[in-house]
């Protein structure tokens, strides 16, 4: 069996359900293009390309989790949402998934809509909702930024994993004997552990960018503190 595959392989979800999700994903990505264009200026466009390339690279780095014989890897939705915003961020992750499916044989081409829905759309959306709340609630310090990135990343991975469970409920090709809850629990448990790794990678990367080029962190620009909306966070993050 192919152990290098990281995403949903052909045959796992039936064709009709995969096709429905392909249409859904295409519609949602079109929306991201239309809305994301507002964010995409001469500064964000190359940054978004870099974020996609970085996510591709880090997705290759499967890390062991505490459960023996199981690994995890970055999904990248939270990282993208933090650095380039939710709309462009979803497009970044989608670009990675398309490259992986079309060039690296990872994730069935027919399953692309499912993989995009889980990792690019659900993961990024969940992450950005949390980012928007946490950055307003937490203190504007490096610690606050790190906690925001960590929590958003962790939760986004678990949400993405449950997206797969819903897809499997709709079109899974193996009869689980009514034990969908078992699959949901297994997926949630293992992705909670993977989420810790995702959180550490995301927080480290975001803190690094925030230190070098705080003006390139979308979340810091888009979500100014209510107390001092006009002051860039750069000087105060420490």
């Amino acid at each position: 069996m192919e152990t290098l595959a990281m995403h949903i392989s052909n045959g796992i979800i039936d064709g009709p359900v995969a096709a429905v999700f392909a249409a859904l994903a295409l519609a949602a990505l079109t929306g991201c293009v239309l809305r994301g264009r507002r964010d995409l200026d001469d500064r964000l466009a190359p940054m978004a390309g870099l974020v996609a390339a970085f996510i591709f690279a880090v997705q290759m780095l499967n890390f062991p989790i505490f459960t023996a014989g199981v690994s995890g890897h970055l999904l990248g939705g939270a990282l993208a949402a933090m650095l380039v915003g939710p709309w462009v961020g979803a497009l970044c992750v989608a670009v990675v998934l398309v490259v992986q499916a079309l060039i690296f044989g990872d994730g069935g081409v027919a399953m692309l809509g499912l993989n995009i829905t889980n990792m690019a759309l659900l993961g990024t959306a969940a992450a950005y909702l949390l980012i928007a709340v946490l950055l307003r609630v937490l203190p504007r310090t490096r610690a606050g930024l790190a906690v925001t990135a960590f929590v958003a990343a962790l939760v986004s991975v678990v949400v993405a994993s449950q997206g797969f469970v819903v897809e499997y409920w709709l079109g899974g090709t193996t009869d689980l004997g009514g034990n969908l809850a078992g699959l949901a629990g297994t997926m949630a448990g293992v992705h909670l552990l993977i989420g810790i790794g995702e959180g550490l990678i995301t927080a480290t990367t975001v803190l690094t960018v925030a230190k070098v080029r705080p003006d390139l962190v979308y979340a810091l620009r888009a979500l100014p503190t209510p107390a001092s909306p006009a002051v860039p966070v750069s000087g105060g993050v420490r």
Partner: peptide
């Protein structure tokens, strides 16, 4: 893979960018 993703990403987002 990194180079292809970077090229597609930068190229695609550059074409999509808001020109103002």
């Amino acid at each position: 893979g990194v180079l292809v993703t970077f090229a597609i990403g930068v190229g695609g987002f550059w074409l999509l960018r808001r020109r103002g």
